[in-house]
Each structure stands twice: as structure tokens, then as C-alpha cells.
């Protein structure tokens, strides 16, 4: 942001200074940046009021220590991880399934052109979407483990609850973008509201629907790998127990496996989405 440009070798009748913002706008901009810097410094001080700087100074040694303990990963631990990996896959897939099943009605209630009531039901559906989106799946899992006990079910439900918002938001936007002329043409034949959905709106949003679902499945694989940290099953459970006993080579193995799974799922999701569109 250095907008001023001094021009030196021009005939004297022209102004020698040219700026591409008015002085006022520039002033506002500088004040804005200054305020940001001041805010940053203030936040930094508040945040670190209780920081133990001795620990921080010690961090590099700690890092080197952990790093050296993690290498080499213990490959013999891999077979033991296959069952948790399978669980993780199931959490993600069943969670996506459940989330999508709940998200579809919410999306139709939230879309301006399909909601039964713009004044009453639409805000409610939008609130459900925002609430689900604001709360991370790990927090949902934390809650569910406390409510229904540790295990895969808590993970599935957590993933499903978190997916409602994501799928619901993208889907209701797709519904609102459908071509109104096709909908009008179907209404003009005397179709009922449900038939209108079935014949005019659903065919238009179907590709978006599958794309969104695959996209969310990919994200859910990623998220379900860590749900075990709070007791909701899957490979995260092994991560937690390995960290607890400071078995760093096992931790390294698990992290590598998670990385591999995420890459593979991303690839599958991209391929499927490509095939649909």
C-alpha cells in the first residue's frame, strides 16, 4: 500500500505529485492499518499475560526430542490399526448418510422458492444450518460421548449433525439457483407442489447434490480420524492411547496412516465428482 508516486522529469506546468487515492481515503486507510496494529499488540499482551516463557524457551529442545523419538515409525503396529481404520471409514460414511438424509428436508425448508413459509419456517431452517455449521464435529462428539457414552455411535451422530449445516447450506443455495422457467412449465400442466419438486427441481439439483455429498464425505473422513481423541471411536482412539503412554513411534505410524487415508479419500471424491459433472 504505497500509492504515492513522485514524477520528476515532467514539464513544470503539470502537477509533480500524483496519487491514486484521495487524501481522505488514504488517511482512512492508514488509520485502519494503525488500528489493526494496535489491536494486534493489545491482543498479544492480553493473550500472553499468563504465558510461562521458560517453557517457550525450552520448545526447540522439546521439539527435537519428540521428533527423534518418533523416527522411525513402528510399522509392526500397522496391522493393529486396520480395525480402527475400518471403524473410521464407517463413521464417515454412515455419518455422511445420516447427515444428508437430515439435510435434504432442511434445505428445502430453507430455500426461498420451496419453503412453505418465508416468515416462519425459513428462519428456523436457517438457524438449524448455522447452528450445525458453527459447532465443530469434535465438539458434537464431546457432547455425544457425554450423553450416549463413548463408541462409534457417538462419532456417527456427531459427523451427521455437523454435516447437516454444510450440506444444507450448499443444497439450499443450489435450490434457489434452479431455473424458474422449468418450474413454471411444470406448474402450468397442473402439477401439485410435490410433483413440482419431483419433476422440475430435483432433476436440476441432482448433480449438485451428488457433488456436495462426495465433498462432505471427503471432509468427514478427515474429521472422523480424530473423533477418537474424545472417545468417539475410530483411529483417533489409538492416537489418544499412544500419546498417553508416550509411544511416539506408534504416533508417527498413526499420523502417516491418517495422511494416506486422507489423500486416498480426497482422490476418490475428486474422481467421483469429476465423473458426475
Amino acid at each position: 500500500m504505497k500509492p504515492s508516486l513522485v514524477n520528476t522529469a515532467e514539464p513544470a506546468t503539470y502537477a509533480q505529485i500524483w496519487t491514486f487515492r484521495t487524501p481522505r481515503a488514504r488517511l482512512a486507510l492508514w488509520v485502519g492499518w494503525l488500528a489493526l496494529v494496535a489491536l494486534f499488540v493489545y491482543c498479544w499482551q492480553v493473550m500472553n499475560a499468563e504465558t510461562m516463557w521458560v517453557f517457550v524457551a525450552d520448545a526447540p529442545t522439546q521439539a527435537a526430542d519428540i521428533g527423534s523419538r518418533m523416527w522411525p515409525p513402528s510399522l509392526s503396529y500397522l496391522p493393529e490399526l486396520m480395525k480402527p481404520l475400518w471403524d473410521t471409514l464407517n463413521i464417515a460414511t454412515l455419518g455422511t448418510l445420516g447427515g444428508v438424509i437430515m439435510a435434504v428436508p432442511v434445505a428445502f425448508l430453507a430455500a426461498r422458492n420451496t419453503t412453505p413459509s418465508v416468515a416462519l419456517i425459513r428462519p428456523l431452517a436457517l438457524w438449524v444450518i448455522v447452528a450445525s455449521r458453527s459447532i465443530n464435529s469434535l465438539i458434537w462428539a464431546l457432547l455425544l460421548v457425554a450423553i450416549i457414552g463413548p463408541g462409534l455411535l457417538a462419532g456417527v451422530v456427531a459427523i451427521a449433525l455437523r454435516s447437516i449445516g454444510f450440506v444444507g447450506k450448499l443444497l439450499y443455495e443450489a435450490i434457489e439457483e434452479t431455473d424458474i422457467r422449468q418450474v413454471e412449465a411444470v406448474s402450468a400442466t397442473g402439477a401439485s407442489a410435490m410433483q413440482r419438486l419431483n419433476y422440475a427441481i430435483v432433476p436440476q439439483i441432482l448433480p449438485a447434490f451428488w457433488g456436495i455429498t462426495m465433498f462432505r464425505w471427503d471432509i468427514n473422513i478427515r474429521e472422523s480420524t480424530i473423533l477418537g481423541l474424545v472417545g468417539a471411536g475410530g483411529i483417533g482412539l489409538k492416537l489418544q492411547s499412544s500419546i498417553n503412554v508416550l509411544a511416539w513411534p506408534q504416533v508417527a505410524t498413526i499420523l502417516l496412516l491418517i495422511l494416506g487415508t486422507v489423500i486416498v479419500s480426497e482422490w476418490i471424491s475428486a474422481r467421483v465428482r469429476h465423473a458426475i459433472l
Binding site: 493473550m47 500472553n48 499468563e50 504465558t51 510461562m52 517453557f55 517457550v56 520448545a59 522439546q62 521439539a63 519428540i66 469434535l138 478427515r222 474429521e223 480420524t225 480424530i226 481423541l229 492416537l239 500419546i243 499420523l255 491418517i258 495422511l259 486422507v262 489423500i263
Partner: peptide, 21 residues
């Protein structure tokens, strides 16, 4: 991008100690 926030946090807490830093 490949490491999730929570996993990074586990390591950084181990290195820098508990707290917002």
C-alpha cells in the same frame, strides 16, 4: 493442510506448554 488443527495442537501443547500461546 494435511495436518489437522487438533493434531498440531497436541504437539504444540507438548512443546510450548498449556495455554493460548
Amino acid at each position: 493442510r494435511s495436518l489437522q488443527e487438533i493434531i498440531i495442537a497436541i504437539f504444540l501443547v507438548a512443546m510450548f506448554g498449556f495455554g493460548p500461546l
